[in-house]
Design a protein around this nucleic acid. Structure first.
Lengths: 123, 123
DNA sequence: CTCATGGTTCGACAATAGTTGAACAGTGAG
DNA sequence: CTCACTGTTCAACTATTGTCGAACCATGAG
């Protein structure tokens, strides 16, 4: 409808809704994607969970949910696309939320030598 | 035995799952309930959103979701029940999460001239 | 150009979640 | 005890989400 723009729609920072963000992150697959983005932008294909490959359409759907909630940004990059965390926007709108969500240790996985999390919860 | 066997089940602090907590709080009604609990425990009937009364069963359902996610505690108190935030448990398991979620301004509720004033009213 | 690649969108289906009235249960008051 | 009150549970229905194959669309390579 609106030309051949490859640019997907992203909500403005001021329009981010807390419930949408929480919902987007409430799915294990999507939370895992968000966590994998902490280290920097990656291609869509790299968002695949290690070991278990999910169909392209399913992955794209999760990315859409994250994008429409304002959690990630999805920009064209040559033939591929780069997915990145909207960290600054989220920090501005919901201070501390991202740190709390991404900083906590993944559920039951107490893998030793996990250098991903900056702050150790649980005493 | 002591007669009072109407205690509802609450997940142990160590068993709290981040995705469950996020999901429980991703619903506007439930988020509102959580917010109203910041000031202290209240009865179930007091969890009703101001203005719009929802059926008892619906309210109870939301409280169940919050309780099973470990967000709130629901204890008998005479003929009624007290609902309270499991603030300490959540802070222990997911540091900063509650502050970030409850401290943020309720969904940009179309306030003209409202210029994002992130104020964490924690007491 | 033609072709292969990386991802989104579409459409159908399954699974989960929300809503609600009615039934049920514990408690305090009279 | 009996009744009114508070809130949970049950059952049925609706609505939203998740999943996934297939079609489609840009782009870069040859």
């Amino acid at each position: 409808m609106s030309g051949t723009s490859r640019d997907l729609a992203h909500p403005d920072t001021a329009d981010l809704a807390l419930t949408d963000v929480l919902f987007a992150l409430s799915d294990p697959s999507r939370l895992a994607i968000a966590r994998s983005l902490v280290e920097g932008p990656i291609e869509v294909a790299a968002c695949q969970p290690a070991g278990a490959e999910i169909p392209k359409s399913t992955l794209s759907h999760h990315l859409k949910t994250l994008r429409e909630a304002g959690v990630v940004r999805n920009v064209p990059h040559g033939r591929q696309r780069y997915v990145s965390l909207r960290r600054e926007d989220l920090d501005e709108r919901f201070p501390g939320l991202l740190a709390a969500v991404l900083g906590s240790v993944p559920q039951e996985v107490d893998a030793p030598g996990n250098g991903l999390t900056p702050s150790p919860p649980l005493a």
